[in-house]
């Protein structure tokens, strides 16, 4: 057993968790189970970030999404009348065209991924990732950063306006 083998093993285990969790999220017939698997999937994605030494991204991934999913659970329980054993139809008459398009898209993705020469190198991740990202967000990328904030604010206000009934 070599160390490269251990690293690969960790990567495949985490990737399996991400994909399996994702499949459960969309296929579970219970909204609450879906939400729990969503936490699991997003947490596994944070594991991938950790493997890439992107600790800041991993921490933010967990911080933002776990709280968000908790909210989702609350709204799921509060706003739906029937949570478990919902008979959802997974398929309709468009199943074959949909399958065709999905397969085509998958083929395109695989082709793109295998054909792209990814630049690899031994560049170490910056030690103070938080500081570097913070500085960049406040100087070079301040305009996109502010735009995203305004967009999020607009979405919040929009959600309140739509939800307000009177």
């Amino acid at each position: 057993m070599t160390d490269a083998f251990l690293t690969n093993l960790a990567f495949y285990v985490i990737s399996f968790c991400v994909i399996a969790g994702g499949i459960f999220v969309v296929s579970s017939r219970n909204l609450f189970h879906s939400a729990v698997f969503l936490v699991f999937t997003l947490f596994s994605v944070a594991g991938i970030f950790v493997m890439l030494s992107a600790y800041l991204l991993a921490a933010i991934q967990v911080l933002v999404y776990v709280g968000a999913v908790a909210m989702l659970m609350i709204f799921g329980v509060m706003l739906t009348t029937q949570l478990s054993n919902v008979r959802i139809r997974y398929m309709n008459e468009q199943v074959w065209p949909a399958l065709l398009i999905c397969a085509g898209f998958l083929a395109l993705l695989v082709y793109g991924l295998t054909d792209t020469p990814f630049a690899t190198g031994n560049v170490a991740a910056p030690v103070e990732g938080a500081k570097a990202i913070g500085t960049l967000l406040m100087t070079k990328y301040v305009l996109p950063f502010e735009m995203v904030s305004v967009l999020l604010l607009a979405a919040l206000v929009g959600a309140i306006v739509i939800a307000k009934k009177d």
């Binding site: 729990v36 936490v39 600790y55 921490a59 911080l63 776990v66 999913v69 659970m73 990732g129 938080a130």
Partner: peptide, 19 residues
């Protein structure tokens, strides 16, 4: 190097457990 953030992030799991 993200210690404080890590602690805050992990403690949010408490909410999931309670729910």
């Amino acid at each position: 190097n993200v210690g404080v953030l890590y602690i805050i992030a992990i403690t949010t799991f408490t909410v999931i457990g309670l729910l």
